[in-house]
Amino acid sequence: MNKVKKNNTVFKKFVILPDVKHKVIKLSENTIEKTQIATLFFSEIGEFFLFMFHTFKETFSRSFEFKEFLHQCYQIGNRTLPLISVTGLVIGLVLTIQSRPVLADFGAVSLLPGMVAVSIIREMGPVVTGLICAGRIGSGMGAELGSMKVTEQIDAMEVSSTNPMRFLVVTRVLAATLMIPILVLYADALGIMGSWAGANIKGDVPFVLFFSQAFSAVSFADFLPAVVKTFFFGAAIGVIGCYKGYTAGRGTESVGKAATSAVVLASLFVIIIDLIAVQITDMLF
């Protein structure tokens, strides 16, 4: 090895030839490495779609684990409610305080309730709640199913005549799909309350007046697409969390990996779905 290198340098001193052979080898090595990464990437995507397909198929099978579904709904609410309450309130408050001076400059303070309501309902409520849930629920599902996988609990379920896809995955995905829209509506409501509180810091706005101003600005076209996209947020968070947990490797360190990658991927999906939703809404309304 050393010898070859030495010879090479000595040789290079006289004639500077392009090191074609070396380059070709390096190139092909790189290509092989890249191909492997690409193969891994595509097989992961394939696996993910297969997982989605199976989840979908099992969702419409005859037996539905209703008790476990309710339990998961409760878990999701239980895990995220405090965080979402605080965030919802603060967002409304901050939005109001921040935009008030600007509106005051234009003499348009009366538009404040409507503006805040529209921005909370259309964008802030869904996306912030979605991201919080991606973090809290995505990681929870990833870690929970991951550790069940590693400690053979999923295998144990399978040998006691229970389809783990149906029992664990379908219930969780459906629970997330149902609960996240509800949580978003809750966050929206708290956001508008926070906004009213913010408006009351300077000046005295009656509650009823504030709300009638807020809601007169919100149209059905603001409301419907915003609600529809949250169902997709929920489904994406559920599927990704379960997928990452369910396909966790062997060994305990893969539980942590499953949880983190679930959060990253779920957050990314929330953002991407939001982007797509904006485009579609733009076209339709």
Partner: peptide
Amino acid sequence: FLFQSGALYDSMTVRENLEFPLKR
């Protein structure tokens, strides 16, 4: 099948663990 790690469902009590295969 007795699993190497025991594979008890750790979100369930002992009673629920035992009832799980029985009910199913």
